[in-house]
Design a protein around this nucleic acid. Structure first.
Length: 280
DNA sequence: CGAGTTTGACCTGCGC
DNA sequence: GCGCAGGTCAAACTCG
C-alpha cells in the first residue's frame, strides 16, 4: 500500500501571503460576503506606508513558518513510512495466524460496541461478518444500524480547551453527554441539525491517550449537501454529501489523521476547509 | 422568544 | 433475571 494514496504529505500552507493578499483578497472578500466598503478598507490597510516596515518582520515570520512546514512534512513522511511498515507486519501476522487471534480485545463486554470502535472498522459494512447464521441475525437485529457508514476524525485542540466541539462545517445539535467507563472524559452526542431528516450522528470524546485530541465518530451519511457548499451554491469548496471531514474518511483504510483546528475560531474556518479540500 | 445546551432520568442490549 | 454501561429523551436552563 502506498502511503501517498491516502495521505498528502504536503501541508499546503500558504507560503506567499503577501502576493495572495494583493491579488486574491477582493475575490475572497466577496466570496465570504464581505461588504465592498470593508474590502476597500482591507486593501487600504495592506498598502499603508507603515506596511513596508512590517514587511521585513513578516518575511522573517514567513521563512520561519516555511521552515516549520518543511520539518513537519518530513516528520509526516517518516510517520507514514513507519505506519506502512507496521501495517505490512500486521498483514503478515493476519495472513499467518488468522484474524481471530488478532481480534482478542481487552474486554469481552459489549462486543458489538467494541467492533464499531475498532480502528480498522472491521464490522462497519457488515461484509466481514457475512458468515453469520440466521440465529445470529435474529439475536442481533441492531446490526442493521451498525451497517451505517462510520468514520472517525481526530482533531487536535488547545490544551486548555474543554469544549467538545469539532468544527467540520456541518451544523450539529448536541442531544446528550455521558461519561463512559473506559475514558474519564465525557462523550458528547450530536445530531446533524442542518436538515431535519438527516440521520447522521456524531460522537465526540477526548482521546484517552492525548487529552488535547478530540475523537469524533460519525455514523451515517448526510442526505443533504455540505452547508458551506450550499451557501456557495456550487463553488469548489466544501465536502461531498455523506462524507466526514477529510481526515475522517481516511480512517477506515489508513491511520487517523489529526487535523489541527486549534485556531479555527473565526472565519478562518471556511478558508481552512478550502485549503484542506484542495489537498485531496 | 427561539434555538441551542445541560443534565438527570429513562431505555435497551449484553454479560453473568 | 439482574446489574451494568452506552445511548437517547426531554425538561430546565442559558444565551443572543
Amino acid at each position: 500500500m502506498d502511503s501517498s494514496s491516502w495521505v498528502d504529505t504536503s501541508l499546503d500552507l500558504n507560503i506567499n501571503p503577501l502576493r495572495v493578499i494583493k491579488s486574491d483578497a477582493p475575490v475572497d472578500a466577496e466570496r465570504f460576503g464581505m461588504p465592498r466598503k470593508m474590502k476597500t478598507t482591507f486593501l487600504d490597510f495592506q498598502i499603508k506606508p507603515s506596511a513596508k516596515e512590517e514587511t521585513g518582520a513578516l518575511e522573517e515570520e514567513l521563512n520561519r513558518v516555511s521552515e516549520e512546514n518543511r520539518k513537519l512534512t518530513e516528520m509526516l513522511t517518516v510517520m507514514c513510512e513507519n505506519y506502512n511498515a507496521l501495517r505490512n507486519q500486521l498483514m503478515d501476522c493476519m495472513s499467518r495466524n488468522g484474524e481471530k487471534e488478532l481480534l482478542h480485545g481487552p474486554s469481552k463486554k459489549r462486543k458489538s460496541a467494541g467492533s464499531i470502535n475498532n480502528d480498522n472498522n472491521i464490522a462497519v459494512n457488515g461484509n466481514s461478518e457475512s458468515s453469520s447464521t440466521d440465529e445470529e441475525l435474529s439475536k442481533k437485529p441492531r446490526e442493521e444500524v451498525i451497517k451505517a457508514k462510520i468514520s472517525r476524525a481526530h482533531v487536535r485542540t488547545e490544551a486548555g480547551d474543554t469544549s467538545l466541539i469539532v468544527k467540520d462545517g456541518y451544523q450539529w445539535r448536541k442531544y446528550g453527554q455521558k461519561v463512559t467507563r473506559d475514558n474519564p472524559s465525557p462523550r458528547a452526542y450530536f445530531k446533524c441539525s442542518f436538515a431535519p431528516s438527516c440521520p447522521v450522528k456524531k460522537k465526540v470524546q477526548r482521546s484517552i491517550d492525548d487529552q488535547s485530541v478530540l475523537v469524533a465518530t460519525y455514523e451515517g451519511e448526510h442526505n443533504h449537501p455540505h452547508p458551506s457548499m450550499e451557501a456557495a451554491s456550487g463553488s469548489s469548496r466544501g465536502l461531498p454529501p455523506g462524507s466526514a471531514p477529510c481526515s475522517a474518511s481516511l480512517v477506515s483504510s489508513g491511520p487517523a489523521i489529526t487535523l489541527d483546528l486549534t485556531k479555527s475560531k473565526s472565519s478562518n474556518d471556511a478558508k481552512r476547509f478550502e485549503t484542506k479540500n484542495r489537498c485531496t
